[in-house]
């Protein structure tokens, strides 16, 4: 059991790192899915089988699929790869890495000298269910309302009226300027590809 834990953990970390560094969006997404599945295994080894299942079904199964759909719809293609290559420069990731390392040091400092070893015994789904219908009932209702809000919001934002004239800010200000100065990165990809 412990071995599975460590292997799954290592897979998760490595998959995430690969996700970060790959410039092809779809590849990165697939690595992310792998990472999430590994985390599900970690959950199982901890005895939290309910959330392991949940992770696979909801997180990796629904959310990531949504991601994949949208990315496919965006249709970035080769240009997308070039863009990512241009953006993934040391100048960009130095700052966040620094902050993250500070946080990691803080985490290590926090958990120093804690008791080693995992507690035995799983937490049954039944227990979780009782907790959900008991003290955490309000949270459940709120979560459902949140999901409703998310639904409505996503519907509204994704709505495309056919006749609305698109304001196309990008066309006239930033994009035009960028296009005029011959900057393919900021000028947007599709337009440049289609402009004769």
């Amino acid at each position: 059991m412990e071995l599975a834990f460590y292997i799954a953990g290592a897979v998760a970390v490595i998959a995430t790192l690969l996700m970060l560094t790959h410039v092809n969006v779809v590849h990165a997404l697939l690595y992310l899915i792998v990472s999430l599945l590994a985390v599900a295994v970690v959950f199982y080894t901890l005895g939290a089988s309910f959330v392991a299942a949940l992770e696979v079904i909801a997180y990796a199964g629904a959310i990531m699929v949504l991601f994949v759909f949208v990315v496919m719809m965006l249709n970035l293609g080769e240009h997308g790869v070039e863009l990512e290559k241009q953006w993934l420069t040391p100048g960009i990731w130095t700052g966040p890495v620094l902050l993250a390392s500070i946080l990691i040091i803080a985490v290590f400092y926090l958990v120093r000298g804690g008791t080693a070893g995992l507690a035995t015994g799983a937490v049954e789904p039944k227990e979780v269910g009782i907790a959900l219908f008991g003290p955490y009932l309000i949270g459940v209702e709120l979560a459902s309302m949140l999901l409703l809000a998310g639904l409505v919001g996503a519907y509204h934002l994704g709505f495309r009226k056919a006749k609305k004239p698109e304001i196309q800010y990008g066309r006239y200000t930033h994009e035009r300027r960028a296009a005029a100065s011959g900057n393919p990165v900021l000028a947007g990809t599709d337009q440049l590809a289609r402009t004769p």
Partner: peptide, 13 residues
């Protein structure tokens, strides 16, 4: 696990 459930719902939305 309960909290994880909530986090999950939030992440979905």
């Amino acid at each position: 696990q309960v909290v994880f459930l909530f986090i999950l719902a939030m992440a979905a939305a």
